[in-house]
Computed example of a mutant assay.
Amino acid sequence: MRTALVIGTGLIGTSAALVLAGRGVRVHLVDHDPAQARTAAALGAGYDEEPESTVDLAIVAVPPAHTAPTLADAMRRGLARGAGRESSGPLAATADLFEGRPWVLTPTRDSDTEVLNLALELVALCRAVPIVMDADAHDRAVALVSHTPQLLSSMVAARLRDADDTAVRLCGQGIRDVTRIAASDPRMWIDILAANPGPVADVLAAVAADLDETVRSLRALQSADETKRAEGTAGIDDVLRRGNAGRVRVPGKHGAAPTAYETVRVLIGDQPGELARIFADAGRAAVNIEDVRIEHANGQQAGLIQLMVEPQAAPALTAALRERGWSLRT
């Protein structure tokens, strides 16, 4: 691959362009907002100009509703023949954005072998993990693992909009985890969902059935009848256990099977440099932090940081942090 065209210089397009430019490919950058293309070029992602002739590969990194017409226009003008999707601005882009991430390819019987090979070359350059799927199977998969969670997160967050301030002040890490992606751009998600409504509706219908059964079980728990209460308990137990079984299947770090980490909880002040200091202290103890969460205390200039580590490393980290004056919580 010697030349490439990136149409749409947001997070995805610019990240791919940075990878290609770093490998010596001449990358042409085009965006409906010329300022974005110039920003991407200034970051070293390529040249903010259209190619004079057909490139080896085109990446169309625009919102889903615009992908087909954008690609058709590029082909009509003899510039390209390739694919992709946009999320946010070029300043958020990094050359390692795709490293270790799944990159789905959906070739058909009519797909040109040379084009597929170029796409695989792009995936390899980005150090992503190629996954070849049927397009319909892909749509059903992302409906389950991406699109439905977005809607459910938004629905839960919507309950908070008119909630009493006292209730909102009780928000803990659980509600923060569930509603984190509810902050996403509605305009982008309308485009995404409009391109995949059927499979998303199918998953939501199954969730709705679970919700109906859970509501019945909860109502049964209010009953004075002991038999009904037992049925309610069984219904709640069923959905929670099925949830446990599904959660276990979610890949963990680097796509491997999820690991049961030990959590070391530390009180941390809200001052500059505190996070860097605690990570440095963990490093001095030769302990690798596998994951981290921060829960802020309401009305206080402090928070609780949860450091997830391998179980055998927890005692050493606990001892090292106590020795360096950190206040640990059980």
Rank of each mutant, 00 (worst) to 15 (best):
A230I: 08
G89I: 04
M188W: 07
A182G: 13
V27Q: 06
N117F: 04
S146C: 06
D212N: 06
V25D: 04
I289G: 06
A316E: 07
R216T: 10
A182R: 06
P69Y: 01
G235C: 14
V292C: 09
A316Y: 03
D112M: 12
R77E: 14
D185R: 04
P51N: 09
A183P: 00
E86S: 15
V142N: 00
T113H: 07
Q306T: 08
A194D: 03
V292E: 06
T233W: 12
P149E: 08
K228S: 09
T330V: 12
Q222N: 04
E121Y: 01
R277F: 06
P107S: 00
M308I: 09
V168G: 12
A245S: 10
L170E: 05
A320Y: 05
S87P: 08
L79K: 02
A17V: 10
N196C: 03
G174N: 06
V287C: 05
L328W: 09
T39M: 01
L275H: 08
G10I: 13
P63G: 15
M75V: 10
G235V: 07
L144Q: 08
E295R: 12
I192L: 09
C171F: 15
A74D: 05
L221Y: 01
A201Q: 11
P102N: 11
E213D: 12
S111A: 06
A234R: 09
H254S: 10
L125K: 07
V287Y: 00
N298R: 14
A282W: 01
A61D: 02
A16R: 07
